[in-house]
Amino acid sequence: MGKNKGARIVITLECSCRNLTNTNKRRKGIFRYTSTKNRKNTPSRIELMKFCPTCNKHDKFKEMK
């Protein structure tokens, strides 16, 4: 039988540079990370500084719906 959903959920983080049209990009497309968070401790959306290979620098990654 399946287990109930716990407090930890899987989230997807997307780079905030996705809407910028920079000609200095290394790759085309949107880069995403997956992570987990505890929904009881952090009910709001989180932002983390991660490395984005598209813009070749550390940038804010925001939680997607």
Rank of each mutant, 00 (worst) to 15 (best):
V10G: 13
V10A: 13
V10Y: 14
V10F: 14
V10D: 15
I11Q: 02
I11K: 06
T12D: 11
T12Y: 15
T12S: 14
L13F: 01
L13D: 01
L13I: 01
L13N: 03
E14I: 15
E14H: 12
C15L: 02
C15S: 06
C15W: 01
S16V: 10
S16R: 09
S16L: 09
S16K: 09
C17R: 09
C17W: 09
R18Y: 09
R18C: 08
N19C: 13
N19W: 11
N19F: 14
N19V: 09
N19D: 13
N19S: 12
L20E: 08
L20M: 07
L20D: 06
L20S: 02
L20I: 07
L20T: 03
T21H: 10
T21K: 12
T21D: 07
T21M: 09
N22M: 12
N22T: 11
T23I: 11
T23M: 07
T23N: 10
T23E: 08
N24I: 07
N24A: 13
N24F: 08
K25Q: 02
K25E: 01
K25F: 04
K25G: 04
K25Y: 04
R26W: 12
R26N: 15
R27N: 14
R27Y: 10
R27F: 10
K28F: 10
K28Q: 07
K28N: 06
K28T: 08
K28R: 09
K28S: 07
K28A: 05
K28M: 08
K28I: 09
G29I: 13
G29T: 12
G29K: 13
G29H: 12
I30G: 03
I30Y: 08
I30P: 05
I30T: 10
I30K: 10
F31H: 03
F31R: 02
F31C: 02
R32Q: 07
R32P: 01
R32N: 07
R32G: 04
R32C: 03
Y33A: 04
Y33K: 04
Y33E: 00
Y33R: 06
Y33Q: 02
T34F: 11
T34H: 11
T34Y: 11
S35I: 05
S35Y: 06
S35Q: 04
T36V: 06
T36R: 04
T36I: 08
T36S: 08
T36A: 07
K37P: 03
K37T: 02
K37M: 01
K37N: 04
K37D: 00
K37C: 06
N38P: 00
N38R: 01
N38Q: 00
N38S: 02
R39D: 06
R39H: 07
R39I: 06
R39P: 00
K40W: 03
K40H: 02
K40S: 08
K40C: 00
K40Q: 03
K40V: 05
K40G: 00
N41V: 13
N41K: 08
N41S: 14
N41L: 14
T42P: 07
T42S: 11
T42Q: 09
T42E: 15
T42K: 06
T42G: 04
P43N: 05
P43F: 00
P43D: 01
P43T: 04
P43V: 03
P43K: 02
S44P: 11
S44M: 14
S44Y: 14
S44V: 15
S44D: 15
S44C: 14
S44I: 13
R45G: 00
R45H: 06
R45T: 03
I46W: 04
I46M: 08
I46R: 02
I46D: 05
